[in-house]
């Protein structure tokens, strides 16, 4: 593993849905300003792992977590940690784009408003900056008051990214952000990820091998709740050290 600044350090993370163990003893380091892809067949625990990084699993009943997830040196599962504060720093993009039934402007301004920014001018600035970062500004700048649900699927997903960026997170978790989009919209999201990693640390779950190979710097292969292999993406896709990984990335199963 190359040297780099560690943003999130996961130490022997275990997670259960009721009696069923979904994650077994996962340890990996997520590096700053890199894109880390999580791959593996359906039900392998990659989405669960992603959601464990900003405690979105708290919302599901009967979830039990053991082990440590260190963010800025603090275990986020420590009793003293406020999940709300954590999620301000670790944002999330979901598989299905989910803009609020509000205007485009209100969608992006929602987070800053929640944090108490009331000044119209600073809100305007944040909205414009976030939409520009999400490469959506030019397409929507003339109808910011239109409903967030009225734009196309790809635009909606970029709107969700802009909304997440507006609260200035440090890490962005993406749960198959392009799985419901057409190839053109997908490529736009991928370009965007490439741009965003300059400022943010990105963790992305994807079903699409090519996408993982294209956008990520590091790739983690999950299988049956375990981390099989974690390495530089190029290595995972060309000379993986574990046979199982090779079989998966070459499409022999999964």
């Amino acid at each position: 593993m190359e040297n780099g600044q560690i943003r999130i350090q996961v130490k022997s993370l275990n997670l259960w849905y009721g009696e069923k163990q979904a994650l077994e003893n996962i340890s990996l380091d997520i590096l700053t300003n890199q894109v880390t892809a999580l791959i593996g067949p359906s039900g392998c625990g990659k989405s669960t792992f992603l959601r464990a990084l900003n405690r979105m699993n708290d919302l599901i009943e009967n979830v039990r977590t053991e082990g440590e997830v260190l963010f800025e040196g603090i275990n986020i599962y420590d009793k003293s940690v406020d999940a709300v504060e954590l999620r301000k720093k670790v944002g999330m993009i979901f598989q299905k784009s989910n803009p609020f039934p509000k205007s485009i402007y209100e969608n992006v301004a929602y987070g800053p408003k929640i944090y108490g920014i009331r000044d119209k001018k600073s809100l305007d600035e944040i909205v414009e900056k976030s939409l520009r970062q999400a490469a959506l500004w030019d397409e929507v700048k003339d109808d910011l008051s239109k409903s967030g649900l009225s734009i196309s699927g790809g635009q909606q997903q970029r709107l969700c990214i802009a909304r997440a960026l507006a609260v200035d997170p440090e890490v962005i978790l993406m749960d198959e952000p392009a799985s419901a989009l057409d190839p053109i919209a997908t490529s736009k999201i991928e370009e965007l990820i490439f741009e965003l990693k300059k400022q943010y640390t990105i963790v992305i779950v994807t079903h699409n091998m090519q996408q993982a190979a294209r956008v990520s710097d590091y790739t983690a292969f999950f299988y049956m709740g375990e981390l099989v292999e974690y390495d530089i993406t190029r290595k995972i896709f060309t000379t993986p050290s574990i046979k199982h990984t090779e079989e998966y990335v070459t499409g022999r199963f999964g």
């Binding site: 999620r87 979901f94 929602y110």
Partner: peptide
């Protein structure tokens, strides 16, 4: 539920 999730993921209480 996706609205709720989106809002909570943005750090809203």
């Amino acid at each position: 539920k996706s609205y709720t999730e989106a809002s909570l993921a943005l750090g809203a209480a």
